[in-house]
């Protein structure tokens, strides 16, 4: 199986001085007392409650927790789709937002869009492919918004589709693809721009266990090729693919532990 190997993260390792004492890798993402509070009339919902968290380059993290515990909220904030109500969020060496300082620092919508475009690859539970566009066009989308010229796009899209073993399906629309194939198109779309991190929110939630395993093979391979991957899941055996397992409860980190089974036979350390 071929999975892309070119990586953008870690190009300037000397810039991020902080070292992780567990793996010795560079810091990619830093959450400093992040909260996300929804005010619903009189009721206050703490979707994320004072979370501090560091994610390193080439981490492979699973996030588990009961429904409504704040997993998706966490992913959305990491993915710059949502903004925390308090705390500091640092991505690579840029401050995405600092809601704590005197003067709130926040990237504007265009800066956030640009980070999402170049640094982040999303994989959703419901695939979120454009229904009337072909697999090729779906994968091409991030490249269009990145302003990459047509011939270069073509090359990259075909490579990404090949990486998820869908080279022969590039002209198919989502309705002509199976669930697993759709999710692979979504993975191709997520990695086509060589992002710094791949965020998968319940990527196997809509798939049967056989197809889920297939998808996990791709995500494992992505990690093996030095990508940073975070996956939200309800299934323990899916979570067990990750090297670091985070449990969330009521918007707080309940546990954050190393998956010793995986680290015993490290792929990449």
């Amino acid at each position: 199986m071929e999975v892309k190997s070119e990586k953008k993260v870690g190009e300037n390792p000397e810039k991020t001085e902080e070292k992780n004492n567990m793996t010795g890798q560079n810091t990619l993402i830093k959450f400093d007392h992040i909260s996300r509070i929804y005010q619903m009339g009189a009721e206050t919902i703490r979707a994320l409650d004072d979370i501090s968290l560091t994610i390193h380059v080439n981490d492979y993290i699973s996030i588990m927790g009961p429904s409504g515990s704040g997993k998706s909220t966490l992913m959305n904030i990491i993915g710059c789709l949502d903004t925390p109500t308090s705390g500091v969020y640092q991505f690579e060496d840029e401050i995405v937002c600092d809601m704590n300082s005197e003067k709130i620092i926040k990237m504007n919508d265009n800066q956030l869009a640009s980070i999402r475009n170049k640094k982040i690859g999303f994989v959703f539970q419901t695939f979120n492919l454009l229904p009337r566009a072909t697999a090729f066009q779906n994968v091409e989308l991030p490249l269009i918004y990145a302003g990459i010229p047509r011939h270069e796009r073509r090359e990259k899209v075909l490579k990404a589709l090949k990486d998820v073993s869908l080279a022969d399906r590039s002209t198919h629309t989502p309705s002509e693809l199976s669930g697993g194939q759709r999710q692979r198109v979504a993975i191709a779309r997520a990695l086509v721009n060589s992002p710094s991190i791949i965020l998968a929110d319940e990527p196997t939630g809509n798939l049967d266990s056989e197809t889920s395993r297939e998808i996990m093979v791709f995500l494992d391979e992505l990690h093996r090729l030095n990508n940073t991957v975070i996956i939200v899941t309800h299934e323990p055996d899916i979570a067990a693919h990750a090297h670091r397992m985070i449990h969330i409860l009521d918007g707080k980190i309940d546990r954050d532990e190393i998956n010793h089974q995986k680290i015993k036979n490290p792929v990449n350390v």
Binding site: L81, N110, N117, F122, P131, N193
Partner: peptide, 16 residues
Amino acid sequence: TREIGTRKAVGAKSSA
């Protein structure tokens, strides 16, 4: 709406 959300998630600016 979902298409717009998807486009924004993969990096479409509001102006796009």
